[in-house]
Write a protein that binds this DNA or RNA. Structure first.
Lengths: 121, 121
DNA sequence: CTGTATCCGAACCGATACTG
DNA sequence: CAGTATCGGTTCGGATACAG
């Protein structure tokens, strides 16, 4: 068997999967959008725009990408004028682990940095 | 108690921590660098450049940022000419969970997308 | 209200030559 | 070998006006 080659393959697969995940949830607004919708439920386009302070052009693009990845659902309501409600999908809950782990690491890292700096003194 | 305000605060904290984490491990090269060093151990500057196909300017910048965040260690060897060895720190192992979770989600998501598309048919 | 079109600046990343 | 300097291209995100 050629373990060297297998390892090379496996390593590339990991890199590819990591990259895939980051293109889905990375960038400036994807996770903020998801967390808001996870916590507060359905929101309209302009509500999201105001809550996050995100301009309509970007918001539209981000929502479209999240919808393609089945993470949020878009529902047009028969109001006057027409409104649209966005919400997380059931599938989106598969991201909760990721969000918790990233959030946790971020908080601990801030402490770790402080520790690191005081140790230097 | 003002739960609305507390929730608002808490939500902002989460967004901040998520952002912090992504600025540390996000971007095109941070995780690839870490995974290579995690798997294969110490590597020299030019080795990393060749393995990942990353240009020296970017590599230098990424390594510096990872070092600031205590994720990799830089060791200058007394060789002729001088060489430098990069390796992951003990602290870097705190990222293993994140890497596994992101990798896992990426793989499953690829399957989920296929499923989603066939269901539409 | 929900987006789209246009324009713009900033950030990110790459190639290459070069220095110590 | 390890990195820096310079330049240039591409992507990203923001402001604003406007259309449906």
């Amino acid at each position: 068997m050629n373990n060297t080659s297998d390892d090379f393959e496996e390593c590339n697969n990991i890199r590819l999967s990591l990259k895939d995940t980051l293109t889905v949830i990375g960038g400036k607004w994807k996770l903020p959008l998801i967390t808001v919708l996870l916590r507060d439920g359905k929101k309209q386009f302009n509500q999201l725009s105001r809550i996050l302070g995100i301009s309509p052009r970007i918001l539209s693009k981000e929502l479209a990408e999240l919808e393609i990845n089945m993470l949020i659902a878009r529902e047009v309501k028969n109001t006057k004028p027409i409104t649209v409600e966005y919400s997380v999908t059931k599938y989106c809950e598969s991201l909760v682990d990721i969000i918790l782990v990233l959030n946790d690491w971020g908080k601990k890292h801030k402490e770790a940095l402080k520790q690191g700096f005081t140790e230097i003194k």
